[in-house]
Measured scan of single mutants.
Amino acid sequence: KKVTINGVEIKFNNPEEAVKFALELAKRLNLRIEFHGDQIKIE
């Protein structure tokens, strides 16, 4: 399963991993996060 985070394609074994990764990243950098299907936007 491929997920695009800020235009960067990252391959994950499952979608939950991708979501956890994105949330952790957003929390660490104190950023806002948006989900659009397989696209995750962090700003």
Score class of each variant (00 low, 15 high):
P15A: 13
K1H: 14
I33Q: 00
L25I: 10
D38C: 15
E34C: 14
G37P: 09
A22V: 13
G37E: 11
K11W: 15
K2D: 04
G37I: 06
F21A: 09
R32P: 03
V8H: 10
K1R: 12
I33L: 06
E9P: 06
E43P: 02
V8E: 03
K1C: 15
L29F: 10
E24P: 00
F21K: 04
N14S: 13
A22D: 00
N13S: 11
I10R: 02
R28Q: 09
P15Y: 15
F21Q: 05
A26D: 00
E24T: 05
I10C: 15
K2C: 15
P15V: 13
H36S: 10
I33M: 03
D38I: 11
V3W: 04
R28L: 11
F21N: 03
V3G: 04
K27R: 10
F35C: 14
A26W: 03
K20S: 05
N13I: 11
I10S: 02
V3H: 03
K27D: 06
V3I: 10
E17V: 07
E24S: 05
K41V: 14
F35Q: 04
L23I: 11
G7W: 11
N14L: 11
I10H: 07
K1Q: 10
N14I: 07
K20R: 12
E24W: 13
A18W: 14
P15N: 09
D38H: 05
N13A: 13
I40D: 01
K20L: 08
I40R: 01
T4H: 08
K41C: 14
I42V: 07
I33C: 06
I33E: 00
H36C: 14
V3P: 05
L23Y: 08
T4P: 04
V8I: 13
I5H: 03
F12E: 00
I40G: 01
A18T: 03
N30M: 08
F35V: 08
N13R: 13
L23Q: 06
R28Y: 11
A22T: 04
G37W: 12
A18Y: 10
E9Q: 07
I42M: 05
R28F: 08
H36P: 03
I40N: 01
E43K: 11
K20G: 03
L31G: 08
R32Q: 09
G37C: 10
T4S: 07
E34P: 01
E24C: 15
K1A: 12
L31A: 12
N30P: 03
E34F: 11
A26M: 08
K41A: 06
L31W: 05
E43S: 14
P15W: 15
N6H: 10
